[in-house]
Nucleic acid binder design. Structure first.
Ligand SMILES: [Mn+2]
Ligand SMILES: [Mn+2]
Ligand SMILES: [Zn+2]
Ligand SMILES: [Zn+2]
Lengths: 136, 136
DNA sequence: ATAACTTTGCAACTCGGTTGCATAAACTTT
DNA sequence: AAAGTTTATGCAACCGAGTTGCAAAGTTAT
């Protein structure tokens, strides 16, 4: 029984072939991936199946989605025991050179004081610039 | 000579009828508006013209665009002497009840420490929750 | 083996944004 | 004022990301 199977089962998903492939792809990346990235990687797989795989992963908190402002949503693995609560939130970084989107897992989102009677539920914070790989 | 004309001229745009209408619409709002908001408001106007009007406004730094994660870009007036530099950046707030997007002009984006060799160029920070109007 | 449920594949569609191109309007030059 | 040049507008058509419906294939339970 594969390692990925355990991960899927522990998050209450059946370990189908497609799901293993996608999870493997996510595991071997250190950056977030989009649906179209996956389409390119698995050119035999159907877009909708990949789409629904990602949705299923997200619903079951195996991955979280990132809106980095590029127009295509990115996905990245959640930490082992992540429940996608506010305190699990972290900053994301989009490199304008290599177009890669990083989870800055060790960079929690700084707190912000809002105007009176505004109540915060969640925050999306995306820093843009150049990543370490692209430095000069 | 209208007030809006001055604004347009001072930002190097010719004060056409269309531009005056759109600028008026932006001035009378205290929340950010999307292209489709404008389409609804001016149902006789062409979508592309509105689109290009917003683009022109943005290029000339009369307005700035906001990606609030809803899938449709919002626009709001810049402050009088705004040059859209990093220090002009502020937090935006999206109310999940009324779906309105606010400029929190008095809430600068808090600074964030990045991993080694990551260089920041700009930041997008969108807080989601309920606004003062929607408070219980 | 049959029935019930889940996953996958294909087609088709929505929606926001964008481009090309022709017309109309506004300035410039003679 | 007429002709030429630039700029703005309107319409059609397109694009990519995301999404839905539905039928076929695969799985699990009875
Ligand atoms: Mn992340
Ligand atoms: Mn703003
Ligand atoms: Zn990079
Ligand atoms: Zn509200």
């Amino acid at each position: 029984m594969k390692d990925t199977d355990d991960k899927l089962i522990s998050r209450n998903m059946k370990p189908t072939a497609m799901r293993e492939l996608v999870l493997d792809a996510l595991l071997e990346q250190n950056v977030a991936v989009s649906l179209s990235d996956l389409e390119k990687k698995f050119d035999r797989a159907d877009k909708v199946t990949l789409y629904r795989t990602l949705k299923t992963f997200e619903e079951n908190k195996l991955i979280h989605s990132i809106d980095d402002g590029t127009g295509s949503v990115k996905y990245a693995l959640c930490a082992e025991n992540c429940q996608c609560n506010p305190h699990d939130l972290h900053v994301h970084f989009f490199c304008t050179k290599c177009k890669r989107t990083y989870c800055l897992n060790d960079t929690p989102i700084p707190s912000v004081t809002l105007p009176l009677n505004f109540e915060i539920k969640t925050i999306n914070m995306v820093v843009k610039g150049t990543c370490a790989n692209c430095k000069e």
